[in-house]
């Protein structure tokens, strides 16, 4: 198993956010993590990355990475795209992408040409401060920045949040491209349409634990789960 999470707990100060999360992502697999706001999906990503202190088992390709410093987790091959994007606003688009590289000039599956071919908007604005890009452009930049580091597994938190339908479609295309290049994806989403379309397997979270596991077809067949844990 590529990523194996067992009985993962996490706290923000006094509040207990994750109550024993179990999940797995296989090599080359696309897995969705669904659920309403505040159930702990983002915290799960952060705990895997070591941005929130994790308690429990986080194994990456058999190696225990729980509690490692984030940069070391990243260097194992896990990429992370945060929900709040966190682009470096005063730096240019190109500099943001450069920061994705783990070592200067060391390219893996992705390079500048790839990014600029996929997103001509970013090409035209290479030397613009990233802070002035539109929300959609910033989202593409954030995803591409992480891809530049050539992760084998990428955790993507709510990439379509607040984006216009046309841009959501672009995010979908990029996700497909990522999968085509053999990168595994753990996708945190609220929009069922996009998640169900691209993933092979999914988890539904509620109150800090996994409440459902199955294929998109299983979820479609299970109206109770959808009503109780997903629909607003």
């Amino acid at each position: 198993m590529m990523l194996e999470v067992r009985n993962l707990h996490a706290y923000y100060g006094q509040s207990h956010i994750l109550h024993g999360v179990d999940l797995e992502v296989g090599e080359g697999e696309i897995v969705s993590l669904l659920g309403r706001n505040g159930v702990g999906r983002s915290t799960t990503c952060k705990a895997i990355m070591g941005l929130v202190p994790p308690q429990g088992v986080v194994k990456y390709r058999g190696k225990d990475v729980a509690g490692l410093r984030s940069d070391l987790v990243a260097r194992c091959g896990i990429g992370y795209v945060p929900e709040d994007r966190q682009i470096f606003p005063t730096l240019t688009v190109r500099q943001n992408l450069e920061l994705g590289l783990k070592k200067a000039g060391k390219f893996g599956r992705w390079n500048f040409q790839d990014v600029f071919r996929l997103f001509p908007n970013l090409d035209a604005r290479q030397d613009t401060a990233a802070g002035v890009l539109s929300g959609g452009e910033q989202q593409m930049l954030t995803m591409c920045r992480t891809l530049m580091g050539d992760p084998d597994l990428i955790l993507i938190d709510e990439p379509t949040e607040g984006l216009a339908p046309k841009l959501v479609e672009q995010v979908g295309l990029l996700l497909e491209e990522i999968a085509r290049r053999g990168v595994s994806i753990l996708l945190v989403e609220q929009k069922l349409t996009i998640a169900l379309k691209i993933c092979a397997r999914l988890y539904v979270m509620g109150h800090g634990r996994i409440v459902f596991e199955g294929t998109p077809a299983d979820l479609n067949a299970n109206a109770d789960v959808r009503r109780e844990w997903l629909e607003v």
């Binding site: 984030s70 966190q86 470096f88 500099q95 200067a104």
Partner: peptide, 25 residues
Amino acid sequence: TRIGLIIQAALTHPQMASSLGHNVP
């Protein structure tokens, strides 16, 4: 320089710089 670039990045989002594989400490 590259280290300067990383310093500038860590000025705004140290956690992000760390998740990209840079040794922020």
